Amino acid sequence: MSKDKMRHVCGISGGKDSAALAIYLKEKGAIPDVEYFFSDTGCELPETYDFIDRLEAYLGKKITRIGGEAPFKHHLFMMGNMLPSPKQRWCTVKMKIEPFEKFVGTDNVTSYIAIRADEHREGYISTKSNITPAFPFIHDDIVRKDVFQILEDTVGIPEYYKWRSRSGCYFCFFQRHEEWIGLFDNHPDLFQKAVEMEKIDPDTGEGFSWIQGMSLKQLLERREEIIELASKRRKGEDNRSWQEILLEEGDSDDSGCLICSL
């Protein structure tokens, strides 16, 4: 591609904000040549893949799948079976950032990022000089309720939000305890795969687990306690739909891997 031509790209994570941004860019029609892409780790939830397909159909434009050259287990092996964690986010680097920068190459690119006007975070902005970030939601004062309205009017809200507060891999270490329980209830096969990746010495309790200081098997033993605590956090049972709860509860209270969850 000519160095004088600017590419316009919009990353899709499978989450609400990036999906709403893709729809917003389509509806505005100001950037007819925008390229949509999805960094497929191969470890996404089935609901995520279904949502990406639904979004692609609505956009009427291909969402390019990038990454996937090496499976997660390859990277895990290369990392000495050290599971990724909040302090060691190697999965983000290997399976999100590096594929994105390979996709962009040396072309001059404007990267549209789905940070809303009511947020106070930066997200991932490449340090490469040929990549220029753009924030349409901030520029146009689009906030959380607007994002939900965009989705409700078009493709709907991703189904995994019924039991999970973010997009990302099924084993995302930023999940709340009750979300791990949700994974067990909704996708026991994926939960079991996550269990099998943990390496815990039964005598010392040391090793690599998804949750600091607790294995997933131990988490299941505390199931009732975890569910009760989650219910208390939500201030008891009520008649709100899961969409209303999601809207009113707000985003997860951790920073997470923003390039994954936008």
Rank of each mutant, 00 (worst) to 15 (best):
R233I: 13
H8C: 12
M214W: 07
F37R: 04
E179V: 09
L55C: 05
V104S: 03
I12F: 10
K217H: 13
S261P: 08
S241I: 15
I259S: 02
G182Q: 09
L247M: 08
E196F: 04
S261M: 10
W180M: 08
F171A: 03
L258I: 05
V195F: 01
A30Y: 10
R89Q: 15
K5Q: 09
F72A: 10
L246N: 10
E249F: 14
Y112S: 07
K73G: 00
P133A: 12
C172I: 00
G256S: 15
S111H: 12
A230V: 02
L59R: 05
I200L: 12
K193R: 02
K96Y: 06
F137M: 08
F103R: 03
A57W: 06
D141S: 05
P84V: 04
K61L: 05
T106G: 01
W242M: 11
Y24L: 11
E152R: 14
L216A: 12
P133E: 11
E249Y: 14
G256L: 12
R240S: 14
K235H: 15
E152A: 13
D50R: 14
E225G: 03
H120L: 02
S129K: 13
M78D: 07
G42F: 04
M78S: 05
V109T: 09
K94G: 06
H139V: 13
D251H: 15
K217S: 13
L45M: 00
L246C: 08
F208R: 12
K232Q: 14
F135V: 05
P71K: 10
C169P: 02
K62D: 06
E152N: 14
V195G: 02
I23V: 15
L262R: 08
W210K: 06
T204M: 13
E178D: 10
V109S: 01
E178T: 02
E98W: 03
S165T: 13
L229V: 05
C10G: 07
P136E: 11
V104H: 02
G14H: 05
T41V: 04
K145Y: 06
I125D: 07
M82W: 10
F171H: 04
H120V: 07
R54V: 12
M82L: 12
L59P: 05
W180H: 04
F173P: 02
I142Q: 03
G250C: 03
S231D: 11
F137Y: 08
N108Y: 00
D33S: 09
A20C: 05
E221F: 10
E196I: 07
V147E: 07
R234I: 03
H177A: 08
R121H: 09
I115G: 10
P86F: 02
Y112Q: 06
R65Y: 07
F184S: 05
D140G: 08
K96P: 04
R164L: 06
K128Q: 06
I113A: 06
I97K: 03
E27L: 04
R240E: 14
E35V: 11
C91I: 03
K145T: 06
M78W: 03
L83G: 03
D53Y: 09
A22L: 13
N186K: 00
D53E: 15
E35L: 05
N130G: 00
G236V: 09
G29T: 09
Y49N: 12
K235P: 15
E221A: 13
E248Q: 11
F208I: 10
I97D: 01
D17Y: 09
T64Q: 01
P188Q: 07
